[in-house]
Design a protein around this nucleic acid. Structure first.
Length: 901
RNA sequence: AGGCUCGUAGCUCAGGGGUAGAGCACUACCUUGACACGGUAGGGGUCUGCGGUUCAAAUCCGCACGAGCCUACCA
């Protein structure tokens, strides 16, 4: 058999994914058990314009681990893939494309433009979804969904109409966030606050009659052109006499009132605030309270309007700012300008500074819709957030403070608002135009030109992908979904809204659990971003280290923010190679062997290392299954890693080598080989959810694997490790005594190796071992079989068990060590030994024990400890003290023996 | 302005009331027939600081300092 010494991930990855997909292993229907429990996940739909980044890879890894684990446990498992239509982003992409042809969307017209967008999606869209094959994501491709699919669009209209009928959606005027670049309204959540250092300008406004001036402070002087009042706090003594006065607004020929409103904080600035109801959310509210006119001085392109005055009309808002400030300075009305830190709102997509504008839009009263979600989280703690702290609280706080959601977007790509207007401007909201006509009693209707926020359709994702508004079998089977895995940035934007729609329309929560992943930063702790160019491309990492290794790193991050570091991936690449070579050893020595055999009969009849590895394996299975089910992926990964490398490779394979590599093809050799293969096969199953490719690559090569290893639910399927039963711990094979005994064997071997190393005995040089005293129970572990193993592992040519380790049996020129449980070991060294050096070595050993013993003694002499600590704790410490005393005594004797001439 | 998270070995991170852990890096030795992407043996930490609770604190509670995140209409 020819197996390369180094694992090549790439060639395995493609082959197996294609095969799994062809055999429909990812679809729930592969499960033939009609009573199988259900496990379902819907993917957070990535933006159709995007490509895979580390955040996706992280989320997908966790979803895939959960999916593969539950599938192997026999669940009817669905992981549903798809993407959203990303209204603004997609439209921008396509417009960019058109611009290269010298066209705008208006040249094409709406219908042709939308056609172009669909074309674009076919050609360039859904990159991430395609890249998921590379990740090994076991998604059901037959159920791939897109928010613009016909049924999902129908769900959107249904959502809209029902909310309108309930009075939760309304059409009206409000202060909205407007992006002057993208030319659309945005919801609060699509706006990002950014710290800004700028200036606070103190402007003086003359009071009509009497020559007084009122000073107002502002960061946006250009908006003064649209001021319709100056406000002060009604209790502010400084201005009390001026309330009701008239201000002559500079640079305009308008006169505005000085009003009193509680909103004004007398402590801040000058205590007098300019009020621009058309361009500031707070001023808008003040304006409504005082019936102030709204003077629009900035237009949708963030340029000054005619109403700003002839001098300013047409200027950009920032040019206007400079000019206003200059004019005030000229007039002697600029009191001062001071440096000032404040925050500005930017478009989450294009980073353009938002312009607050008064506009007529569609809104959803989220507060009412969110009430049942709020009750559920507060009363039943559902869904269960992982980690619970701090996300349950964050989520609850959000639901308690819901504002109306601006739904309409001035775009062409998206779900068009199902509202029609007649010639008189009356609005009819309906599921389709025919219904609207019926309502209106006329055919002369025009549909609202706007589309809905992309998140409006995403809000329905768990139910619409499963068939809602129809009561489909999928909806019945897979809803509520088992878990939602996502990043913390969209808890409000998305998670909360899915909870709301699920409860509203299906009457059940959208998911049992919500797992929030951490954020991956670059190695300097900076957030990865395209603009900074510091992103690590997961595909590059896959190429360099393999998908399995990358997944292992991602899985163990759990919810912790982490700086990306290639060395971790390299470590797991090395682990993959270790697995490969362990399997290589097993396969190169597999003649006559069969997986699943070799462990016949009573465990009591097995050799110590067999009982031990089976105990370790079952402990591991227990711990790993438990860890995965509780989202403790780090623990799961560490546990398997440790089992595979330390227990299986370093000890079990090494201890089995003599039997496995025996020259003669005896039944004993075949049995030993089968046992090693059996443990390997179980380990591969344990690893599979994390490392799907290498486990499949190796598993298929093991002699004797087939349908009998598959979970009973998949009996009709082709053999594959992904449908094998996930190992369940067998309690009867967990053997504490075997583990303790093995521990003393390991200790003996380690101590002898230590002696070799510390005394500089050449690796090739053979030594002799004396172990005793034999009357002590512990040394009974050293059966002839174990002795042979110890000799092999320490390169010893002789191993004698002695009744007593007295000077007459142990040569003076020996290196010695005192082990736990009273066992002593001596390595006779003849003339090679340096007596002084060996004495020093023993003395250091004794010193270590002494330090520990001192600490224990202090603890045990504390009355309070003995009385109040749990009895078992006290007993444990006493035993340790006794053991240390015994070893210390042994060390003393050894030193004496060395000294005796 | 509130709220939250984090501070553990040189680096990246686990852990979490009762002998400080991993990977990488480091030191020495080893081309031993699975693996040098390896093996064996080692070195390295008053778990940010100060108080408190406790028989016992890296772990729980305050406070301070440092890093970061989120919410909020303060001109």
């Amino acid at each position: 058999m020819d197996i390369p010494k180094t694992y090549d991930p790439q060639q395995a990855e493609e082959r197996h994914y294609a095969r799994w997909e062809a055999q429909h292993c990812f679809a729930p229907k592969i499960n033939r058990d009609p009573h199988a429990p259900v496990y379902s996940i819907v993917i957070p739909p990535p933006n159709v314009t995007g490509s895979l980044h580390m955040g996706h890879a992280l989320q997908h890894t966790i979803m895939d681990v959960l999916t593969r684990y539950h599938r192997m446990r026999g669940y009817r498992t669905l992981w549903l893939p798809g993407e959203d239509h990303a209204g603004i982003s997609t439209q921008i992409q396509v417009e960019k494309q058109l611009r290269k042809e010298g066209l705008t969307r208006h040249d094409l017209g709406r219908e042709k433009f939308v056609e172009r967008v669909w074309q674009w999606r076919e050609e360039y869209g859904g990159q991430i979804i395609k890249q998921m094959r590379r990740e090994g994501a076991s998604v059901d491709w037959s159920r791939r969904r897109f928010t613009m699919d016909e049924n999902l669009s129908r769900a959107v209209r249904e959502f809209f109409v029902r909310m309108y009928e309930k009075g939760l959606i309304y059409h009206g005027e409000g202060m909205i966030n407007w992006c002057p670049k993208d030319q659309t309204a945005l919801s609060d959540l699509e706006v990002e606050k950014e710290a800004q250092s700028g200036q606070l300008y103190y402007l003086q406004y003359p009071v009509k009659g009497g020559g007084r001036r009122v000073t107002v402070a502002t960061t946006r002087p250009e908006t003064m052109l649209g001021d319709t009042a100056v406000a002060v706090n009604p209790n502010d003594e400084r201005y009390r006499d001026l309330v009701g006065a008239t201000i002559e607004l500079p640079l305009t020929n308008r006169e505005i009132p000085l009003i009193a409103d509680e909103y004004v904080d007398p402590e801040f600035g000058t205590g007098a605030v300019k009020i621009t109801p058309a361009h500031d959310p707070n001023d808008y509210e003040v304006g409504l309270r005082h019936n102030l006119p709204q003077v629009e001085v900035i237009d949708a392109h963030a340029r000054m309007t005619e109403d700003a005055g002839a001098e300013f009309a047409g200027l950009d808002r920032y040019e206007a700012r400079e000019k206003v400030v200059a004019k005030f300075a000229e007039l002697g009305l600029l009191e001062k300008a001071v440096n000032y830190e404040f925050s500005i709102s930017k478009c989450g997509r294009c980073r353009t500074v938002i312009e607050p504008l008064v506009s007529t839009q569609w809104f959803l009263k989220q507060a009412e819709l969110g009430r049942s979600a709020l009750e559920l989280i507060k009363e039943k703690h559902e869904p269960r957030f992982v980690p619970e702290v701090p996300y349950e609280k964050v989520f609850t706080n959000w639901l308690e403070n819901l504002h109306d959601w601006t739904l309409s977007r001035q775009l062409w790509w998206g779900h068009r608002i199902p509202a029609w207007y007649d010639e008189a401007g009356n609005v009819y909201v309906a599921r389709n135009e025919d219904e609207a006509r019926a309502q209106a009693g006329t055919n002369q209707l025009t549909q609202d030109p706007d589309v809905l926020d992309t998140w409006f359709s995403s809000a329905l994702w768990p139910i619409s992908t499963l068939g809602w508004p129809d009561a489909t079998q999928d909806l019945k089977t897979f809803y509520p979904t088992s878990v939602l895995v996502t990043g913390r940035d969209i808890i409000f934007l998305w998670v909360s809204r899915m909870m709301m729609t699920g409860l509203e329309f299906v009457g059940e929560k959208a998911f049992d659990d919500v797992f929030i992943t951490g954020t991956i930063f670059d190695k300097h702790g900076q957030r990865m971003s395209k603009s900074k160019g510091n992103g690590v491309d997961p595909l590059d990492v896959f190429d360099k280290y393999g998908v399995d290794a990358t997944r292992l790193v991602l899985a163990q991050m759990e919810s912790t923010d982490t700086r990306w570091n290639d060395t971790q991936v390299e470590a797991y690449r090395n682990f993959a190679n270790k697995i490969w070579n362990a399997a290589r050893f097993c396969l190169l020595n597999s003649e006559g062997a069969t997986v699943g055999q070799g462990f016949e009969g009573e465990p009591a009849t097995w050799a110590l290392h067999e009982r031990w590895i089976m105990s370790r394996l079952n402990q591991t299975a227990q711990k790993v299954g438990d860890a995965i089910e509780n989202y403790r992926f780090h623990e799961a990964v560490q546990t398997i890693y440790h089992f595979f490398w330390d227990d299986f490779c370093d000890w079990y394979i090494e201890l089995s080598k003599t039997d496995v590599t025996a020259a003669d093809a005896t039944t004993e050799r075949a049995a030993a080989r089968s046992r090693v293969l059996t443990v390997l096969e179980q380990a591969l199953r344990l690893l599979h959810p994390f490392m799907p490719f290498i486990t499949e690559e190796l598993w298929l090569q093991l002699p004797g694997v087939g349908v009998s290893q598959l979970h009973p639910a998949y009996r009709d399927a082709e053999p594959t490790v992904m449908l094998a039963a996930y190992p369940q711990a067998r309690a009867e094979l967990i053997d504490e005594r075997a583990e303790a005994e093995m521990q003393s064997v390991i200790e003996l071997i380690s101590r002898v190796r230590s002696i070799r190393s510390e005394l500089g005995i050449k690796p090739g040089e053979e030594i002799e071992l004396l172990v005793g005293p034999a009357r002590n129970g512990q040394s009974g572990v050293f059966t002839p079989g174990v002795m042979a193993q110890v000799m092999r592992m320490t390169r010893a040519s002789k191993f004698s068990v002695k009744e007593a380790m007295t000077p007459d049996v142990v040569p003076r020129a020996s290196a010695r060590a005192a082990l736990a449980g009273g066992v002593e070991v001596a390595v006779p060294l003849g003339g090679l030994i340096d007596f002084a050096q060996e004495r020093e070595r023993l003395r250091r050993e004794q010193e270590k024990l002494h330090t520990e013993s001192e600490r224990l003694a202090a603890q045990l002499s504390n009355q309070n400890f003995v009385e109040r600590a749990p009895a078992e704790k006290v007993t444990e410490l006493r035993q340790r003290v006794a053991d240390i005393a015994q070893r210390t005594h042994a060390l003393e004797q050894m030193q004496e023996a060395l000294t005796a001439e």
